[in-house]
Design a protein around this nucleic acid. Structure first.
Length: 207
DNA sequence: CAATAGATCATCT
DNA sequence: GATGATCTATTGC
């Protein structure tokens, strides 16, 4: 498993900026299995979506540089957090070179630490799998808000780590959820068969 | 189980 | 003034 077993959420230092300084699709794949840490809470990334700087009409950056998309065009390894539908916040990690657009939406987490805290923040959740199995749910569970917009992921308080022991998994590829532009692009990635992947996804159905 | 409505507001036209 | 990278509750089979 991971270091959550011996008291501390993780042993490794945060992922280096070079990890994010690559194409969004590559980063989205490699983020699967990594651990997001914020305060006492931590979760393993089980589902991501890539949003590209070019040829991707679904990306917020497709309309060019605006006050809101400033962070996406900035240096890699920072958080892009925005409000969606007037009530939920979504967490993204900025990728690609400074000046280029590209980011990865974190869609679902498998809780690994601070589960009681997550329950407090998401009183409506039935089981562990409902705490962070969606982009709006995971920000609530982890206490991530727009004040983290632009935060440096290599510095904290919001960081991403490699697990101490990697468990092998297969990557499932599918179309992105909830978008109307460029819906055909295969830019959604998840850990195949993982039960913490978001619902309403068209995959992972059992029985 | 599938489909749909409503909540609610920052951003951009 | 319209539109969302969503979630929950509710309705209908």
């Amino acid at each position: 498993m991971n270091c959550a077993q011996h008291g501390k959420p993780l042993c490794a230092r945060p992922l280096a900026r070079a990890f994010y300084h690559r194409p969004a699709e590559q980063v989205a794949r490699d983020l699967l299995g990594k651990i997001v840490v914020h305060g006492a809470t931590a979760g393993r990334i089980v589902e991501t979506e890539a949003y590209l700087g070019q040829g991707d009409a679904a990306a917020h950056s497709a309309r060019g540089l605006t006050p809101r998309t400033r962070v996406i065009f900035g240096p890699p390894g920072h958080a892009y957090v925005y409000l969606i539908y007037g009530m939920y916040e979504c967490l993204n990690f900025v990728t690609d070179a400074d000046g280029a657009a590209g980011c990865v939406l974190i869609r679902a987490l498998e809780p690994v630490a601070g589960i009681e805290r997550m329950r407090e923040r998401r009183p409506g959740a039935k089981g562990i799998e409902d705490l962070a199995n969606g982009p709006g749910k995971l920000t609530l569970a982890m206490g991530i808000t727009r004040r983290h917009n632009g935060a440096d992921l290599t510095a904290g308080p919001l960081t991403v780590h490699a697990p101490k022991v990697d468990e092998p998994f297969r990557i499932a590829v599918s179309r992105r959820i909830g978008i109307s532009q460029s819906p055909e692009l295969p830019l959604r990635f998840s850990i195949a068969g993982n039960r913490f992947v978001s619902r309403r996804s068209g995959a992972g159905r059992a029985s």
